[in-house]
Design a protein around this nucleic acid. Structure first.
Lengths: 180, 180
DNA sequence: TGGCGATGTCAACACTTGTTGGCCTACAAT
DNA sequence: ATTGTAGGCCAACAAGTGTTGACATCGCCA
């Protein structure tokens, strides 16, 4: 079949995200990604240069924080947890990054970058700039641990918990890390 | 040089733990492990059969919980966090498992197993058997997230925090998950 | 119609991986 | 001194990797 260049690029990118998210960097091969996309491995190289650049393209992330200044201060924890649960379930790039950042230094650096440029600044508007990095780091540790247990390692009790129960348990933790 | 069979096996195992912990399952090659151990790759096969069995041997873990029934109930959170910080820093097998469980289903299964057979039962003695899995799961999510941020992804604010500050912040979370 | 650039395929490359079998060598028992 | 054996090394295999360059084919424009 014949497609536009942009279409093909998008198809490859979607397949890459899925594979990287499912398998991590090393186990996700160019051949398997190309197979999923229904094209030749050589096309992947033509459009993205090499595997590293393909990964970089697949791991672009925007946390899309809403305007938290409008949220009542005592509900910030719950809002943040809910927001992240939504992200983890709909944004494959986040799973890509978590699955990969654990064994790949470049991906870990990308996570630290997202933390520093997207999460920490938002937290700073809530808690002031001096303690913001620590508080943001603590919140990140709980959020990441939750994602790890629920979406990656699939600990049965955490997987089985309904979304609302999860928010009920985790939100006070985030609230305390950010606002106490 | 000539060594006893048991010695060589131990040397290989130590090198394997280090490599698996640093690189994860796929990137840690038999050749690199053998290189670190100063022996031929063929020896690894002779002593452990194949890579999977070597990994299984390197990932044997005992969380070594002390007797928590003697601990004052309101200090359980702090004790648990301190215990785990010690584990993460001295037991390479834990990092092996975390680095690997994210992309390797067998390792993830092992983590779920450790969770179910070593962590959950201890929690059950504190909180009764009905809510124990959920509470243990929540505690695990915070502990794992902390380890991820501090030892794997190396988020600067979390890396920089002294051990005592970390305990001060995280312990109340664990305390609430387990005892409220 | 002819040609040309964009889109896609094929086969091969150089390399690395886990794994195997044969061979060598030291050492202890006979 | 000879031999048996356990410990160790080497070279090679088959399979799979990222990557490349030459070749085919479609569709548009002159």
């Amino acid at each position: 079949m014949r497609r536009s260049s942009a279409d093909t690029k998008a198809v490859i990118l979607a397949a890459a995200r899925e594979r990287f998210a499912a398998d991590g960097y090393e186990k996700a091969t160019i051949r398997s990604i190309a197979g999923d996309a229904g094209i030749d491995p050589a096309m992947v190289m033509r459009y993205f240069g090499n595997k590293e650049k393909l990964f970089a393209a697949a791991a672009h992330i925007d946390l899309k924080f809403p305007d938290f200044s409008a949220v009542p201060r005592d509900q910030i924890g719950a809002r943040l947890v809910a927001h992240f649960l939504g992200l983890w379930e709909h944004n494959e790039a986040l799973q890509v990054l978590l699955r990969t950042g654990v064994t790949n230094e470049a991906a870990a650096e990308r996570m630290r970058d997202i933390f520093a440029t997207q999460l920490a600044p938002v937290i700073a508007t809530l808690t002031g700039p001096d303690q913001a990095p620590i508080r943001a780091g603590l919140a990140a540790s709980q959020i990441l641990g939750l994602a790890l247990a629920r979406y990656i390692l699939k600990f049965p009790p955490i997987v089985a918990m309904p979304r609302d129960d999860l928010i009920h348990w985790i939100a006070p933790t985030i609230q305390r890390y950010l606002c106490d």
